[in-house]
Design a protein around this nucleic acid. Structure first.
Lengths: 340, 340
DNA sequence: AGTAGGTGTGGAACCGGTTCCACACCTGGA
DNA sequence: TCCAGGTGTGGAACCGGTTCCACACCTACT
């Protein structure tokens, strides 16, 4: 390389070295429309010799694009690192984002807190758009993002402003119904559920579907305890269920981590799974295979959701705010193992 | 707010609304040196009424600062999400970075691969500096970063160019020695170790320390099997150790995850821990407490390392390349539990 | 031969901030 | 009274790209 260490070459230097104008050099860099083969070659060569890379800030300023998107996760640290859901989510989002040649900026915030700070950041246009996952009832993110006019896609529905942002989600109602149906079909008559946190939409839907199916089958659907999506919380909730409804013989837990806690609690109390109590989980992200017995559960389609979310976001960023927000629902596929 | 939805206000509009020049408005925004109280108040008011936030790209272009730093993790996906080390690292780095009012850009790459793409990104000056963790032997990151002149701090030493970048690490040699000493003191005479991957410096140091202490005690230090820092790999490595050195009575594993695998393998083969084989791990990030028996291990000081790394990085970004790179070593504290 | 239309090209404006510098004004000390 | 020195202020240059537009040139068709 020609340039000396430390100082970064500019487009101006490239253009001079190639013997063309900045305008032509710029065009040559970006696809080469309206550039002669000779000019293109000269620029390519100059770029190589100088080791040139466009300055991100300057390009952003001119194009009004940054080429990066934010992943907003309004969740407490413990949950983020204990729940494979987030690891997996981060994984698939990272991969999808890479496929669109975008950069990912991770924006972890405490739920409810720091929202001002976050909005200030977003208003600065550091990112072209955002993916929001794990949205809670109290957050005003959907509203704030819509007002800001920043392209946003929610993975998992927010509680309000659902018509102002794009949403990609899994069919929690359907999963809840299927779980209940499965337990009923295998002969369970005293059903209970360990639901997700009441302030999260995903858990709410699974509970709602379960309720519907149980009621329609003519059974009572009042054995409901809310957990916090952690294993310990699942064990606790399971304990409460057993105390209040001793005859319980079938449980739907809204996440595998909570189901794993339930297995532990049931085993500790001498109940066999599935003989005494059948158990259905949700997520299938590794945990379900490692419990004893392995869990019958639903495969949370987060790979598909993330891919679709990024696609939607990239499209929205490219096309501008013309199109109305979209909502896409993926079915969660039942995976039968031994627990029910 | 006065402005209409969608369009972002500029400094020019703020200045006009406040009745001052752009220059004065800019000064008022940044600390207010050389600004009269009246002008300051007028600008503050205009900012509030317009809901103004400075445009990141424009500011970056002018100041040659972006206000964000990258976290480079050259590691395969499986390991990143299976090993609590990374979760914890991400957690503490996120927190430290926030304290310095910086933004974190997560840069996950496959080890060895994609380095060109990464360097192109860094040359674009999207970030002011980088933290590198989990460096492998084949990577040329240290060299490339040094040449680029981008402030960089490695958590865990790279293999080469150690004098051209700043390094924060834990004392692997000391830990290896201590582990060996502990096993020897409790009466073990046939020692083995499940070392880390041969291409990672952290594992190398722990092995080296162990070797030194074992040799100095007049014992043979040839029972060495390399694992891959995963649980399955630990179990496998333990199996190999037991096959080749049946009389083994003390093992040092370079990570708790591998130690957990070793516990599983030992138990499966009917060896009691610690009665038949004593076991020492490394990391103490949650896993060590959950094995049966809980692991005697070393507390990997990643909180302290991350804090220090960010401090060093922020300082280097502020002061420019004047100061020479620094190297800081933290001791890993022994945590005694039941396995040794 | 004359013109319509396409192709390369470079000058210059522009994106939205920061900062250098010149200048006006005010204060206090000689 | 004069001047040195400090304080606010605004004009203008600058950061490093992209893109609009005018223009020159060349081809092909009427």
């Amino acid at each position: 390389m020609v340039r000396s260490e430390g100082e970064t070459p500019t487009l101006d230097q490239v253009a001079r070295l190639a013997g063309v104008s900045k305008a032509t050099a710029s065009r040559a860099l970006n696809g080469g429309a309206r550039v002669s083969p000779q000019a293109q070659a000269a620029v390519d060569d100059a770029v190589r010799r100088l080791g040139y890379t466009p300055n991100a800030a300057a390009r952003s300023l001119a194009t009004r694009r940054t080429g990066s998107v934010g992943l907003i996760v309004p969740e407490s640290d413990e949950r983020i690192f204990a729940d494979p859901f987030f690891a997996q989510m981060l994984h698939v989002v990272t991969r999808s984002v890479k496929a669109h040649d975008l950069q990912l900026v991770l924006l972890l915030t405490q739920p409810g807190k720091e929202e001002q700070r976050l909005m200030r950041y977003l208003r600065g246009r550091f990112v072209d758009g955002v993916i929001v996952t794990s949205h809670h009832r109290g957050d005003r993110l959907a509203e704030n993002l819509a007002e800001l006019g920043l392209p946003a896609v929610f993975i998992g529905s927010p509680w309000t402003n659902t018509d102002r942002v794009s949403i990609v989600e899994s069919d929690g109602i359907g999963a809840g119904r299927q779980a209940a149906r499965l337990l009923i079909d295998r002969g369970c008559r005293a059903l209970g559920t360990i639901a997700g946190p009441a302030d999260m939409h995903a858990g709410h839907d699974r509970l709602e579907g379960w309720r519907q199916e149980v009621s329609e089958a003519g059974l009572v659907a009042d054995a409901v305890v809310h957990g916090d999506f952690t294993e310990a919380g699942g064990a606790r909730a399971c304990g409460v269920l057993l105390d209040e409804f001793p005859g319980i013989d079938g449980i739907f837990a809204a996440s595998d981590l909570m189901a794993a806690g339930a297995v532990r609690e049931l085993t500790a109390r001498g109940r066999r799974v599935p003989e005494d109590v059948a158990l259905v989980g949700y997520d299938d992200l590794g945990v379900a295979e490692q419990t004893d017995p392995p869990l019958t559960t639903f495969r949370n389609p987060i790979g598909a959701m993330a891919t679709e979310a990024i696609r939607l976001l990239a499209q929205r960023i490219d096309e501008g705010p013309g199109e109305p927000p979209r909502r896409i629902v993926f079915a969660a596929e039942l995976v039968r193992r031994a627990s029910a």
